[in-house]
Amino acid sequence: MIASAPPSRISFCASDRPEAGLARDRLTTLYGSVDAAEADIIVALGGDGFMLETLHANLNRGTPVYGMNRGSVGFLMNDYDEVGLPERIAAAGRAVIHPLEMEAWTESGALNTGLAINEVSLLRQTRQSAKLRISVDGKVRLEELACDGCMVATAAGSTAYNLSAHGPIIPLDARMLALTPISAFRPRRWRGALLSHRARVEFEVLEADKRPVSAVADNLEIRHVTKVAIRERRDISLTMLFDAGRSFEERVLAEQFMA
């Protein structure tokens, strides 16, 4: 990989954690900071949740985001180091991801839309299990799933909630989506499916009045949904930067061999 020229215009942003704010102030003193709208690179200081927030905030600009961990998990972040930051950014590898689009209809008939970088989840709202009918590309594939919920996850999100729900880890270049149940009760042995990234997935909520369900696209929640349609927006590209030797692909591969 040939390194690019160090960025001349960096915008630093930080989560509300005290250590993230302190890091932003120190880095701004060292390297200066411009408004995000004028930046070549955005440096996000926080955890994985803040990285997602930063990507969402820059959906329309498409400015590459380089994260440094000042949070807890940090799977999507680089190690924090104040030395030689422009050179590190210039040598970093790029991971291009595409979000999911959620269309969610509620009991009132209202249509709500949202974008998700990690996953779109359907979740039961009460003690009653959810009952969902699942269609892929217009064909019913599962007539009834009794569960706590179900999700469609991107490759980038496959190591997050999807992995916690025992879904598969997907390499970034696989062009696939994970359809993963959350605590499936019936059919008990259904473990989900791997789908083409071109697939359109539809959920119909059965007995919605008795078994209310919410739909969540990253941090956007729509309650009392009756139908949800999900597809990948290939026309929207988001770029994350990772230090040389610590690419997103390497992290995903290493995650599959962790004890």
Rank of each mutant, 00 (worst) to 15 (best):
Q128K: 08
Q128Y: 11
Q128P: 01
Q128W: 03
Q128M: 09
Q128L: 11
Q128I: 06
S129W: 10
S129F: 12
S129V: 06
S129D: 08
A130N: 09
K131N: 00
K131A: 09
K131T: 07
K131R: 12
L132C: 02
L132N: 03
L132E: 05
R133P: 00
R133G: 02
I134R: 07
I134M: 08
I134G: 09
I134P: 00
I134T: 05
S135D: 11
S135C: 02
S135H: 06
S135V: 07
S135Y: 10
V136H: 06
V136R: 06
D137P: 12
D137I: 02
G138Y: 09
K139C: 15
K139S: 15
K139G: 14
K139I: 08
V140I: 11
V140W: 13
V140D: 13
R141K: 12
R141C: 13
R141D: 09
R141L: 11
R141V: 14
R141M: 15
L142Y: 09
L142C: 10
L142H: 06
L142K: 04
L142I: 08
L142R: 05
E143T: 14
E144I: 14
L145Y: 01
A146I: 14
A146K: 06
C147E: 02
C147Q: 05
D148V: 00
D148Y: 06
G149L: 05
C150W: 12
M151V: 07
M151K: 04
M151E: 01
M151H: 08
A153N: 13
A153L: 12
A155H: 03
A155E: 09
A155I: 07
A156W: 08
A156R: 00
A156T: 09
A156E: 02
G157Q: 01
S158F: 11
S158V: 05
S158T: 01
S158W: 13
S158L: 13
T159A: 13
A160N: 04
A160H: 01
Y161H: 15
Y161V: 10
Y161F: 05
Y161W: 14
N162C: 15
L163Q: 01
L163N: 00
A165E: 01
A165P: 04
A165M: 05
A165H: 01
A165T: 03
A165W: 01
A165R: 02
H166N: 14
H166F: 15
H166V: 03
H166M: 05
H166E: 10
H166A: 13
